[in-house]
Design a protein around this nucleic acid. Sequence first.
DNA 1: AACGGGTTTATGTTCAGTCATAACCCGCGC
DNA 2: GCGCGGGTTATGACTGAACATAAACCCGTT
Lengths: 229, 229
Amino acid sequence: MRTGYQDIKADILDKIRQNLWPPGAYLPGEIELAQSYGCARATVNRAMRDLVDDGVLERKRKAGTRVKAVASQNARFAIPLVREEIEATGATYRYALVERQTRAAPGWLRARVQLDADTQVLELRCMHFADNQPFQLEDRWINLDTIPDARHQSFEAISPNEWLVREVPFSKADLSFAAINATPEMSDFLGAAPQDAVFMAERSTWMDHRNVTHARLYFHRGYRMMAQF
Amino acid sequence: MRTGYQDIKADILDKIRQNLWPPGAYLPGEIELAQSYGCARATVNRAMRDLVDDGVLERKRKAGTRVKAVASQNARFAIPLVREEIEATGATYRYALVERQTRAAPGWLRARVQLDADTQVLELRCMHFADNQPFQLEDRWINLDTIPDARHQSFEAISPNEWLVREVPFSKADLSFAAINATPEMSDFLGAAPQDAVFMAERSTWMDHRNVTHARLYFHRGYRMMAQF
DNA sequence: AACGGGTTTATGTTCAGTCATAACCCGCGC
DNA sequence: GCGCGGGTTATGACTGAACATAAACCCGTT
């Protein structure tokens, strides 16, 4: 019986599922477990740390390790580039720039992401197609104070998303999802009926506490976002 | 200069942001980094493993470690119990069972989650209120082959979600989100106008490849699901 | 009984070293 | 020139040990 940390993880999960260690119960200490598995404490430690990461266990120094009372399941999902999401289905991706202008940041955006009153933004509207069917309408504002290079980018061939991912690697973002009724304008772009329910994602991206960009993504009718855990 | 694994993580991220290690570039090997940081290889290893976990790096044995070319940002967010989500806002939570019946699994569900033709399910409809305002309408089907105990639960005081989390800890699930137009029935429950856009989450839960339950959650008008990474 | 400080203890982190494993690479044989 | 196999090497996993740290707990004082 090889006891790698993965085996230990599996065994702990088994014990939890068999209700030997019900939610809220304390597990034996690392030393004790290491003895019973016949491995080093570090190995048990790694297994348990992983399980904390997965949202299964809770640990506190001295107090010990317990099974999380409520399984606040940690869903974890990747937000791919639109292009990748489309190409993954086998469809042909097409991008189109609809509008592009430089302007002072609108009030709602200044409030939302804490910009100065005189911040200039590049405002873009783009469409993403899958097999020439409307897939996503993207409204985007790029902070020109933070990313001055964007001023000289036409964004006619490359989508702002894709350009930004290359230029501004690994920033923080916050993300929200909602359902809204299509405005007449949106339904024109997305080929939806007026009032159709539209899945919307809104994302703000930050680098060192400075806002980089804000985007509103409107998906085609019937879009489903999927995740698993 | 203390070089804990967190300091190393931070330093690597800094270097990436400063474009010293652009996307796709290979990082120095663990041994080399350990020397330059003046720490053990295991410490560098842990920092790098963490960064893989965060979706920043890609590692392959022998090949080496590289900055992920596209930041397929791993959003990771917790799906809390409705009750907790509501109570976190300071509102008072109220639960109500609307309907409860045992029946053969409907065809669409059998197809969706691979059930036998004669599988019995417990079909439930519940409402969740925040400060007496409709918050979420829940349609749920519990597989009685997998969870026979559910047959004897009235679900009048405790929501099926909460009960299941206690009974069936740490199962796998897949999850999808969509926007739909409210049916007249849904708008009655949710206090929405007919045709209002409704945010819907659909979740299937599995234990050892057997389906446990399937749920459709319809949120109140204007609901926003939030995540960050 | 309430409070405060010291002790104990379980986890957190790091270390140096070993073995395992995957994959690139180079050279041999054809 | 091509394919195959072994050598090299970078990461992956594990060990046993040590020290750090936070917090629970005990105990003595007020």
